[in-house]
Design a protein around this nucleic acid. Sequence first.
RNA 1: GCUUCCUUAGCUCAGCCGGUUAGAGCAUCUGACUGUUAAUCAGAGGGUCCCUGGUUCGAGCCCAGGAGGGAGCGCCA
Length: 576
Amino acid sequence: MQQFDKLYLLRRELLRKKLAKVEALHKWKVGSAGFQPARDAPKLAEAGAWHGRQGGLKRAAIKPPTAPNIPPPRPGATFTVPSAPFFDPTLLTCGLKTRFTWPHPPLVFAMSIARSTVQQLLATPADHLDREVLAKGWVRARRGNKYVQFIALNDGSCLANLQVVAAAEHFSDEALTGVANGAAVAVRGRLVASQGKGQAVEIQATEITLYGGADQETYPLQTKQHSLEFLREQAHLRPRTNTFGAVLRVRHALAYGIHKYFNDNGFYYVHTPIVTGSDAEGAGQMFRVTTLAPEHPPRTADGSVDYSEDFFGKATNLTVSGQLEAEIAAMALGKVYTFGPTFRAENSNTARHLAEFWMIEPEVAFNELPENMNLAEDFLRSLVRYALEHCAADLAFLAEHYDKDLLERLRFVADTDFERLTYTAAIEILKSAKKKFEFPVDWGTDLQSEHERYLVEQHFKKPVILTNYPKEIKAFYMKLDEDGRTVRAMDVLFPGIGEIIGGSQREEDLGKLKARMAEMHVPEEELWWYLELRKYGTAPHAGFGLGFERLVLFVTGMANIRDVIPFPRYPKNAAF
RNA sequence: GCUUCCUUAGCUCAGCCGGUUAGAGCAUCUGACUGUUAAUCAGAGGGUCCCUGGUUCGAGCCCAGGAGGGAGCGCCA
């Protein structure tokens, strides 16, 4: 009996599905013909926004049923469509009518009005004005009198604010309560040519909705300039300022430009690990990663911490460089780059260092030092050009407020060949310089900041690439020169920044690499896989590291690296 | 890690040789003003002078220690 019931229900369900399918075949459909500009229906233009793909008009063709055994409809047949608001071009009326006579021209649907960004609204051509729009953002300033109020609206899409005009005839004082500096609002109204000076367009508001107010007694940001030090303590709110909006948009453009440059030039983006089991990357102090209890870690017989008990079964750290792993990828994919976070547990207290920063590390198989220099120079100049092209308004703002010569300097770097010379030649120049240095200049010691600055800012007056440093002051993996004294290293020095790129041709000879590791006390066991790259199919290759924030620092003209990353990490500071 | 400077109203800063009730601009609040745009004008409120101790008849100011911040240097990207 039970089984019979089950079978009955199953057959009923199948029948229902079949009927639904037949019904669907007989249905008239409203096709989607894409979005059409307002010219298709001048009357409905009133209701739609011009901007973007949203909020506009949708023209939809009528599609009769197309099932194989159904004859095509005869002229005069009636049909129904879903009862959405639409515009009937044959009648020049709007409505919710659902019955039509075949054949029928396409219907025009008014889409619900959607938000436009301030950037889109400000870029509206003059012949597309006088339309209803919806903007959402944060109030930057409100001023006016009892007849008319002006609200500067910013939504982060660009530096500029949109002026919202709220006339007293539409808005009482109470209606604008809370619409003050810092508040989030939605504004509906007509986008028109501005009556005032200072902006091309403005919104004559018809409706202002307050999402969230901001208590004027306690809101930290005011309609005036704040010091960068103060804003550093307000890292959760500083993106709402002109300065940090501009910096963050430039930062984004540079990040995108980096991926674009490499993609356009046949590089593959490889993701190197953030947690690393090797502590021999040779680039500085590392942050330990562990799940062991800090108070009572397990200990071995000799009393040291027993990392075999740890999460990974060994001691692990945050990466200081993706270079060694990038070399693995380069020896397979040819041209690769990494772009990821990097960590240095060094007690560096300067305006050019962070404990957590982003680094770009290209690595190219078969490249030698000259090709490496060409890549670094072309890469940097392309990025500066990209920023000049895509961030004009933001860079102009930063130039005006922080660095008068910014645009001039960026254009200069974009257009000028870098000076290339060896470390040895640089030492000669410094020794014969009239300037007195605090630190002595001697072949074999690393150059001090003052020496680098002299070369870049006073002697050559342009970016400089220094090459062939003494082997003692450079990392173990750099290729030894024929003289056995220097290595094929290169540092790119920029005005105001100092070292922006450090790179080299890598040692591809297994024997020489092992000898260098022994000299510099780098344990071979840890890097057995790195050595195997030289054991199997070794080839010349080269690469470099670019500190992303140093690039942003240079392009924005900001003075402190803590102001070009949203949440800076530096000694004694990990707030936010 | 080293050197050096700074800490006074919500913000940016004055504050003389140690002297009576600590000031300005901006911001906030109230009012005025028919299109402002760093709006303007008038008025009002707003202070643990970073903290602790000391010197002194008397300390925002001098001394010692501590905390926080900036700049420069080192390490580097």
